[in-house]
Structure formats: structure tokens, C-alpha cells
């Protein structure tokens, strides 16, 4: 009986604290070795892409988590690196992994007609040899 009580308590701790710790650990673990940048897809009249400007270091792997926080669909294209996400539905998160292999300034866009100001929904990626990054990690 005492062992089963201990088992029940262990399972309860695992189901609560264990779940929270495991989720946070897993998320950190799967991003290991990459810079993670969360990019919010927002139509221009509500503030446009956030961040609007992403600074990266050449040769350093990066993970973009593109999150649509609105109630309309958006898309994402970073044509200079051959990256495109056809549609990011409201609430959806798309993960894009790449390693910038050249320096320069590269535009990214929304590719879904999301609003009358859709054409203005754009930002830029700035790749340099070394970087003092302005964009935020989550």
C-alpha cells in the first residue's frame, strides 16, 4: 500500500511539474545549436512584421518561428535564400531553418493577400560577418 501511495504521488508530480519541465526542456533541446528568432506576422495597419528587421551572422544556423497572431492568413517568402511558406493560417506557427551563406540585405514578404495594405507587409534580413543582434530570442 505504501509503495502504491508513493507511486501515485510520483505520478501526480510527473503529470504536473514533470509535464511543465519536460515541455520547456524539449523546446530548448530542439532549438539547440541554432539562433531562434520569433517572427510575428502582422498586417501593416497593425504594426507590420515584428521584428521588421532581422540581423544574422553569416554561416550561423538560424531558426525562424513565424507565428500568425491575427485572424487572417499570411504567407512568408525570403526569396534570396529560396525560402517560402505558402500559407500561415491564423494562430499557426511555421518553423523555417536555414544558414545564411552570404552577407547583404535581403527582403522578406507576406505572400497572401491579407489586407488592402498587403503589398507593404515586408521586412528585411541583414546578414553580416559578425553581428550585434537586435532581434529577440524567445
Amino acid at each position: 500500500m505504501r509503495r502504491q501511495e508513493a507511486l501515485a504521488v510520483a505520478l501526480a508530480v510527473l503529470a504536473t511539474v514533470g509535464t511543465v519541465v519536460a515541455a520547456l526542456w524539449y523546446d530548448r533541446h530542439r532549438d539547440a545549436g541554432r539562433d531562434v528568432i520569433e517572427l510575428l506576422a502582422i498586417q501593416p495597419k497593425n504594426g507590420n512584421w515584428q521584428p521588421n528587421e532581422i540581423r544574422l551572422e553569416r554561416g550561423r544556423p538560424v531558426r525562424l518561428k513565424i507565428r500568425n497572431v491575427e485572424t487572417v492568413s499570411h504567407g512568408f517568402a525570403l526569396p534570396d535564400f529560396g525560402i517560402g511558406v505558402a500559407e500561415i493560417k491564423p494562430g499557426e506557427v511555421h518553423v523555417v531553418d536555414f544558414t545564411p551563406d552570404r552577407t547583404g540585405v535581403f527582403p522578406f514578404y507576406c505572400t497572401v493577400w491579407c489586407s488592402p495594405e498587403h503589398m507593404a507587409m515586408a521586412g528585411r534580413v541583414i546578414v553580416t560577418e559578425s553581428v550585434a543582434r537586435a532581434s529577440s530570442d524567445r
Partner: peptide, 29 residues
């Protein structure tokens, strides 16, 4: 108890999703 513990796990995930989902994230996802 076993069923409750499973749901405790499930509701921990639900509470986390609600907490991190914030006020603005659309519900479908």
C-alpha cells in the same frame, strides 16, 4: 485515480497552452 492522473497531465498541458497562448492567439490552433 489512474484516469484522474491522466487528465491531470492533460489539463496541465491545457493550462500551459492557455497561459502561453495569451489573449490574442486565435483559438483554432
Amino acid at each position: 485515480l489512474a484516469l484522474i492522473l491522466f487528465n491531470v497531465f492533460l489539463f496541465t498541458v491545457i493550462l500551459m497552452a492557455g497561459f502561453f497562448g495569451g489573449l490574442t492567439s486565435p483559438g483554432n490552433y
